Amino acid sequence: MDEMILKLFISSFLFSVILHLSVIFLAKKYRLFIDSEMDKKPQKMHTLPTPRAGGIGIFAPFFWGLVLFYLYHPQPLFLGLFVGGSIIFMSGIIEDFNASLNPKTRLILQCLGAGFFVFLSESYLSNLGFGIELPAYIGIPFSIFAIVGMVNALNIIDGFNGLASGITLLALVCLYFLLPHSLIESCLIVILIASVLGFFIFNFPWGKIFLGDGGAYFLGFVLAGLLIHITQTPLNGETTPNISPWFGIALLIYPFWEVIFSIYRRKFIRHLSPVQPDKLHLHTILYKRFLKHNAKTSLFIVLSVSPFMILSTFVSSNDLFLLLISLAFILIYGVIYSRSTLFARKKR
């Protein structure tokens, strides 16, 4: 099994590297997927025109693996990830083509992709931990909401070289070491790790290519889908291992809380639309006020968040500990954010 996993990793990594090299070459030659110099998005933190189609080099190897696995080991999870992920990826890659979708259309596509995943994979949030069970008519829409939330959470933190992909890699490695390596889900995770790593080496630290909306949406979708599946669905006929539904929140508490806090900040403090982008995310503030360097900002945040992610993996079956880890992060985040904005006010 270990030899097969190594072959999967190497082949997926090489496939991803070749695709990313091809995308970088073709994008620059034919001006495809290139950030416009006139693009004034608040989250834009680079000045040189750069291809933003890194999601293609992650999407293709993973979906090739899904097709092969489904042919030899047909499982509802693979079909759910394939159909739902294709719709989610499409909702982002259209943006990367400079053919902008309005927020309502994007949200509808994301809900559709999440809905297909829940329906086809037969995985949804029914157990919330602490003995709380949800009926299907509540658990299914709640699951769709959670998936769409994580899709946008990964996109929110995709502002610096290696930030979103670094958090994703760390989360996937934690998942891999948590699951028995004999599970087919572990093989899927290996393919995704290799695919993301193939992107990461071109993105960090120099930013030769970006995830784009397609890549960020897709990674958020797959992470949310896998976490729902492994915390709610018996694996190979048994609950192996016993993973708390709070594990997903604690593992991805940084993007999870970033999107929750961003909605609160925009809606209730600044009285703006919750979907309107701004320059007030924690990573942007840390970059502008203190670090002044794209890649160093990503490295600082990933290293700061990693203890919470690793600790949550060690206590993955304990609802209370995972809740406390999440609350500790939220408290520290609040202190850092308030101190950083106070520093900004004093500078004025």
Rank of each mutant, 00 (worst) to 15 (best):
D2V: 14
L8A: 13
F13D: 08
L21D: 11
L26T: 11
A27W: 01
K29I: 11
K29W: 07
M38S: 13
K41P: 04
P42N: 07
P42A: 13
P49A: 15
R52V: 13
I58F: 08
F59E: 01
L66Y: 06
Y70E: 11
H73L: 14
P74S: 13
P76I: 13
I87W: 09
M90Y: 14
I94S: 05
L101C: 08
R106M: 07
I108K: 07
L125V: 13
G129Y: 05
I132V: 15
E133K: 11
G159S: 03
T168S: 15
A171K: 00
L179E: 02
L179S: 04
S182V: 08
E185L: 10
V190L: 10
V190P: 04
I201M: 04
A216H: 00
F218Y: 04
L223S: 07
A224C: 01
I228L: 11
T233P: 03
L235C: 12
T239C: 08
F247T: 06
F247A: 13
A250K: 02
F256S: 14
F261G: 12
R270W: 10
H271T: 07
L280C: 08
L280Q: 12
L282E: 01
K288D: 14
R289S: 14
R289M: 13
K292V: 07
H293E: 13
T297V: 05
T297I: 03
S312Y: 02
S316H: 10
L323R: 06
S326A: 10
L331G: 12
I332S: 10
Y337G: 12
S338F: 08
R339L: 15
K347T: 14
R348I: 14
